[in-house]
Amino acid sequence: MNETIQLLISGIAQGMIYSLVAFGYNMTYATSRMFNFSNGNFLMLGGVVGYALYMSAKLPFIAMLLGIVLVGLIMGWILYKTSIEPSLQSKSNVAWILATLAFGIILKNSVEVFWSTDDFRFESPLGNTPLRFGTVGVYPQEILIIIVSLLIVVGVEAFKKYSILGKAIVAVSEDKNTASLMGINQHFIILFSFLLASVIACIAGTLVAPITLVSATMGTVLGVKAYAVSIIGGLESGYGVLLGGLIIGVSESLTARFISTGYKDAPGFILLILILLFLPSGIFGKKVIKKV
């Protein structure tokens, strides 16, 4: 029983990381019908830069956090300029998929060439001693991940609901043309959503680093699972990713324990295929009627 609770908490923590990456997919998909197929590599960048600042350069935690936000903004802007903006003008409706994939492998390979191909341990600022709740032991980092992830998702959703810039994002998501007529600069909104998604992914990278290892490859499969989370939750939905992350994270940790670690990725992918077959717009997605 205790073991199951521990498994559940680790699963939830892992799932929240997927949710953060997926949250980025959904936000940009809403504003631009595109998302960064390599958001997982932005997470990796967050982990790597976090490691360099906090573990190697021994900067204070808060300085590292600022550094990560800055890196997220800069890379998000470069992504926008090199991949998203040209895709907006391209006639092909799959160009963005390939462009962001390309950007991601450039990023990953650059980290390998200019940093390292090895794995590194990232020490949690909260230490490595499990907190004891009766007989259940939980790593403080896992609790941190869950709290911070929830704060980010709720915070951004509240921002969209109550601030004027946030409302502009919702407006562009609902109807680009009408939003433009209302004087909203939709290209700025799209850029903004990509910056936000990149920064969130980078923060997710430092959050997850202490419970995995930091390496150039840490984002690849994680990013793929985040697609599953995003689509299970519904690409159009904000809070849906939390449920999606929960489902994938928990099913993964249970599979790893009770079936085989080798198969821990399988349930997420199978679930993804099944959901798309039977509920093409996800659990919370809206159904759209195509007009001719």
């Binding site: 409706n93 998929i97 990725d265």
Partner: peptide, 19 residues
């Protein structure tokens, strides 16, 4: 499915076979 949805399914499919 089309576009990103299908692309993601093909990834999942490839990874399942790999697993």
């Amino acid at each position: 499915l089309t576009g990103p949805y299908l692309a993601v399914v093909t990834i999942a499919y490839g990874l399942l076979i790999y697993t």
